[in-house]
Computed example of a mutant assay.
Amino acid sequence: MVERERLSGLDSRMLVAKSFVTQDFVQELVVERFATDPGMLDFDLRADGLSAHPWIRAADLVHFHNLHGGYVHPYSISSISRMRPTLWTLHDMQALTGRCFQSLGCERWREGCGHCPHPNTPPLAMPDRSAELWHFKKAIYDRSHFTAVTPSAWLEGLARTSLLGGHAIRLIRSGIDTDIFRPGVCIGKSGSSRIRIGIVAERGERSSWKFVQSIEWLLDSLHPSANGFELSLVGIDEDDVSTSDSRLVRIPRLTGDQAMANYYQCLDFYVSLSGAENYPLAVLEAQSTGLPVVAFSVGGTSEIVEHGRTGFVASVQEPDMLVQYCLALINDATLRHRMGVAARERALEIGQIDRAVTEYKELYESLV
């Protein structure tokens, strides 16, 4: 995104917790902790570190993304937003809750959190001080001036009824490079006649806590109804999947868009078992590569997957329907082709990164 903004003429720069590239417009923040306060997450960081950074002081506008990575004190939101025009793109629910990335059905975040029913989901923080964190966040937001941006209409709706309800909220859907994620010939595909089903876990990050159903469950549910398939997994550790089923193919973690595009091009369709999402880019990437998608209808997934046209979405409460949709695609090559074509069309319609850059530039100009 930043590279596209720079190509469009903006002098965009990134301050990050950990950099994986060597670029003069990307810099890691030096984190200083002054105390240890169990359960309080990032409130033990120095509050003045980010607002004093020379890039922040020289900026015409500040654009926050994920701030819950252990490198930004929440008080920086109010101090910086009073210094510079500020917008904040939300990639999960953490800004709305006391602690959790995703509420997983819990509604306590609407009125103050506390007595968290999901203490073992990230970010882990014990003891449970979610109510205290929620009230700290409310006080910070009340003293801040920023525009919130959500990639999905689903999160936009939640944000409007949350702690952020008093702030301007905009919907700008995230984009991908549809010239890279496009239908193509599989590189190095074997002569296997098996239908290849793909599953990606957070681009190489352990995310099994989000899986409402397991890989083992899917394999068991598809047997013996279908044997002519294999599950191709990227980014799931061996400890997360215990089965030795021969239909399971583990692929080393992949880095970069082109490597991921090559992976998608070797599949026949894509499945998401996640029970918590905002605007899943893996789903968008798969559709852009011409793959039908089968997923649970969580978060903004249904805004990408058009049920019955580009794939299928099933209720989390009806997991057997997801199995039936997988079987329909396994057994019907014509259906896979028709949905794959529609999936590519849908990605071009809603998912092009240049469209997202244009919308952000227009928002920047309105705020400066």
Rank of each mutant, 00 (worst) to 15 (best):
A328Q: 14
L248R: 04
K137N: 09
A356V: 00
F211I: 02
L104F: 15
E132A: 15
H337M: 14
H53G: 12
F296M: 09
L322R: 01
G308I: 10
P280H: 04
S315Y: 00
F146M: 13
E205W: 02
N331P: 00
V298T: 12
A95P: 10
H337G: 02
A295D: 03
M321H: 11
C106Q: 05
Q27N: 05
S244C: 10
T147Q: 10
D240R: 05
L284V: 10
G175S: 05
L15D: 06
E345G: 02
G275R: 03
L219E: 07
G69K: 01
L124Q: 09
P127Q: 11
A131F: 00
S144L: 07
I77E: 06
S366F: 12
P151C: 09
L335Q: 09
A343C: 12
N227M: 09
L363E: 06
A201Y: 06
G351K: 04
D60V: 08
E365D: 06
L327G: 07
F296G: 06
I176R: 02
R160K: 15
T310K: 01
L335H: 01
S302I: 04
C113F: 06
A314P: 08
E277A: 00
F64M: 07
A276M: 01
A295L: 06
S8G: 04
D257P: 07
I80K: 00
G198P: 02
F181Y: 15
Y263W: 14
V62W: 04
G228R: 07
Y75I: 00
F136T: 13
V357W: 03
G112V: 11
A343I: 10
R247W: 00
S162A: 10
A226G: 08
I199T: 02
T289G: 09
W55V: 11
M321L: 15
K210Q: 14
I180M: 09
L363H: 03
F229L: 10
R4G: 04
A52G: 14
S79I: 10
P224E: 13
K137Y: 06
C266T: 13
E318G: 00
I169P: 01
R6I: 04
D220I: 00
R346K: 13
E156V: 03
D245T: 10
S225V: 03
R250V: 07
T22N: 13
D320R: 10
A328N: 12
S225A: 10
A328R: 12
L96A: 05
I195D: 08
S221C: 05
E365C: 01
H167Y: 09
D320I: 07
D24G: 07
A261E: 03
W109P: 06
G166V: 09
L15E: 06
T310P: 01
G184L: 08
A59W: 04
L273Y: 00
V271Q: 02
D220K: 10
D37E: 13
A201V: 11
V62Q: 04
H91E: 12
S190Q: 08
I199C: 03
R247T: 03
S103W: 11
R196C: 12
